[in-house]
Every structure is written in structure tokens, then in C-alpha cells.
């Protein structure tokens, strides 16, 4: 019953979001775009860290690469915007293959640090590309932005629906993966990698595939984020704070290893930011303290604790044996 109410609530939220241009002003739309983009980033990091146990601190590598590839494709390659998005995502995923080949030699904490170092390398490389402005970055020509809509408001609407699609693809994609046969394997890896391997799950292949898929979708989100900003610099594109630290915070407080956790976490993160962003450094300290508190009190996070306590599930992925 409670599940049904929550599902109805979710459906209403999706409907409201789908109609947002009808009720939200320009500033609200901008905020919603950011919320939706972060939801996509959080779902990807959760799929990676929460299910396969690959704690990446280098997601900014994919956001940055996605952004830079998008700028390179549109500015240097003259690729139309809507072709550049999937192409940037695909190329990011392709780059994740050799990157993963290196990163997968490392385990646990070494993997985490390794991914961060790799992201730094990508940042330094991006700063060397003179055609894209080097260290000081580059702006998207007005013509490229105008190619999606003539008016300013029209562009906002198009961008909003890109963000909406991103979030829907991320949440629905994760849900469909988790409900598939492969999702069974991923959930098993989450709970015990050694046992999963012992019952025939090729854990290495699953982890690598997830690594590449999440890189691609994170890259797509990156392409969107910098298309929306109309400007990219190496420091902004490869920011560990913006694209990994906040995302980890969202997933950890929301509930790692659950599909609902990143949704709850994203809502909470932006609610806190709206209230406390003016507090400056204290706001960041508060975020850190909250994350630590959640880990100490119940490391399953908000949704993890709720799920364990009341058995609630908004997007169920479990399979029951009928009587």
C-alpha cells in the first residue's frame, strides 16, 4: 500500500517535471536542469560503486571528456548538436576502455586514487589542446547554440528536455538493467563478489562493462552540462568537487546500492543547497559533517534504512517465488 502511494507520487513528479516549462520560470528551469543532470550522475556513480564496488573518485574524467568532446565535435568538426551528444557519449565510452584497462590493475583504495589521477591527466591533456582554448577554455559559438532554437526561451526549453531525457534514461536504464538477468549478477556482486564468482558470474567482465557504460552516460551528462553553460575550461570540466565529491555525497546520504537512494539524495542535496548555499564554507563543512554522520549512524543511507525498516520499494527489482 505504502509502495503504491510512493509510486503514485513518483508518477506525479515525473508528470510535473515533463510539464515544467508550463509552470516553471527561467531560473526554476535552470535549477531543475541541474537537479536532473545530477540525478543522472548519481545514478551512474551508484551503479558503479554501489553495485560493482568500484569506488571511482574520477568521474570528472567522463564529465570533462564528454564536455570537451562535445565542444570539439561541434566547433572543430561542425557536427550538428543532436548528433554531437550521442557521439560524445560514445567516444567517452570508447576512451573508458583503455582507461579501465589501466585502472583495473588497481584494487580498492588504489583504484579510487588511480581514477582520480587519471582524471587529472585528462585535465592536463585538455589544457594542452590549443584549438579548444588550452588552459583558459573556450566558449561555444552563438551559431551552435542558436542551431537548436532561435529564441532564448526556446533554447531553455530544448535544454530542459535534454536534461529531463538524461535523468529518465539514467533512472529507467538502471532499473531495466537491475531487473534483467544481468542485474541479478550485479546485485550478487554488490553483496559478495567472491560468492558471485563461485556461482558462475564472470565478475571481471560485468565490472568492466558497467565501468564503460557508466562512463558513456556520465560523458553524455557532461556534454549536456557544458552545452548548457556554453563555456568550458579544464578546471570546470574536470572538477573533482563538482562532478565526484557532490555525487558521492548524494549517493551516500540517499542510500548506496539502491535505485531510490540517488533520487532521495539528489532531492536532499539541492534542498540543502537552496537553504544553506549562502553560508559559504560552512555549507561545505555542513555537507561533509552530514555525510560522516550518515555513515556513522547507518551507512546504508536514508533510503537503505527506510527500505530495511519498512520494506518499502518504489522501483522494485526483486523477484519472488510464487506460492
Amino acid at each position: 500500500m505504502a509502495n503504491r502511494i510512493l509510486q503514485a507520487l513518483l508518477a506525479l513528479t515525473i508528470l510535473a517535471l515533463a510539464l515544467a516549462p508550463l509552470w516553471a520560470g527561467r531560473a526554476d528551469l535552470r535549477l531543475l536542469m541541474e537537479v536532473l543532470a545530477y540525478l543522472a550522475l548519481a545514478q551512474m556513480w551508484n551503479l558503479l560503486a554501489g553495485y560493482t564496488g568500484l569506488i571511482s573518485v574520477g568521474q570528472q574524467a567522463w564529465v570533462g571528456l564528454g564536455g570537451y568532446l562535445f565542444f570539439a565535435l561541434t566547433i572543430l568538426g561542425g557536427v550538428p548538436v543532436f548528433a554531437a551528444f550521442p557521439l560524445a557519449a560514445l567516444l567517452t565510452a570508447v576512451l573508458a576502455v583503455p582507461t579501465g584497462w589501466v585502472a583495473f590493475r588497481l584494487q580498492g583504495a588504489y583504484f579510487a586514487i588511480g581514477t582520480w589521477v587519471i582524471a587529472e591527466v585528462y585535465r592536463l591533456v585538455a589544457a594542452q589542446v590549443g584549438a579548444l582554448g588550452g588552459g583558459s577554455g573556450i566558449s561555444l559559438p552563438v551559431a551552435v547554440a542558436k542551431s537548436i532554437a532561435e529564441t532564448r526561451m526556446g533554447r531553455e526549453y530544448v535544454m530542459y528536455y535534454i536534461a529531463f531525457a538524461l535523468a529518465v534514461i539514467a533512472v529507467a536504464g538502471v532499473w531495466l538493467i537491475l531487473r534483467s538477468r544481468w542485474g541479478l549478477a550485479l546485485t550478487a556482486i554488490r553483496d559478495s563478489e567472491v560468492a558471485a564468482e563461485s556461482v558462475g558470474v564472470n565478475t571481471m567482465r560485468s565490472k568492466f562493462l558497467i565501468y564503460v557504460i557508466t562512463a558513456g552516460l556520465t560523458g553524455l551528462t557532461g556534454a549536456f552540462l557544458f552545452f548548457q553553460k556554453l563555456r568550458i575550461t579544464p578546471d570546470a570540466a574536470f572538477s573533482v568537487n563538482d562532478w565526484t565529491a557532490f555525487v558521492i555525497f548524494i549517493v551516500v546520504i540517499g542510500g548506496i546500492g539502491t535505485i531510490e537512494g540517488p533520487i532521495i539524495g539528489t532531492i536532499l542535496f539541492f534542498a540543502l543547497r537552496e537553504v544553506a548555499a549562502d553560508w559559504g564554507t560552512w555549507y561545505l563543512m555542513g555537507l561533509g559533517a552530514l555525510a560522516i554522520a550518515v555513515m556513522l549512524i547507518d551507512k546504508r543511507g536514508l533510503w537503505g534504512a527506510i527500505h530495511a525498516r519498512w520494506g518499502l520499494s518504489i522501483l522494485p527489482v526483486s523477484r519472488n517465488l510464487p506460492d
Binding site: 541479478l184 546485485t187 559478495s192 560468492a195 558471485a196 563461485s198 556461482v199 558462475g200 523477484r319 519472488n320
Partner: peptide, 23 residues
């Protein structure tokens, strides 16, 4: 395993389902 390694977040049935799907 000597020390049981159940998939704790899954039901008993799902634990077996992983094995019967991938074994």
C-alpha cells in the same frame, strides 16, 4: 564457503536464481 557468503540483500530464492542463471 566455510563462513557463509549469502547475498544478504537478496531473498533466498534470488540467491539461488543467481546460481541457476549463471551456473
Amino acid at each position: 564457503f566455510q563462513i557463509p557468503h549469502p547475498f544478504v540483500g537478496m531473498s533466498v530464492f534470488e540467491n539461488l536464481l543467481v546460481a541457476s542463471s549463471f551456473g
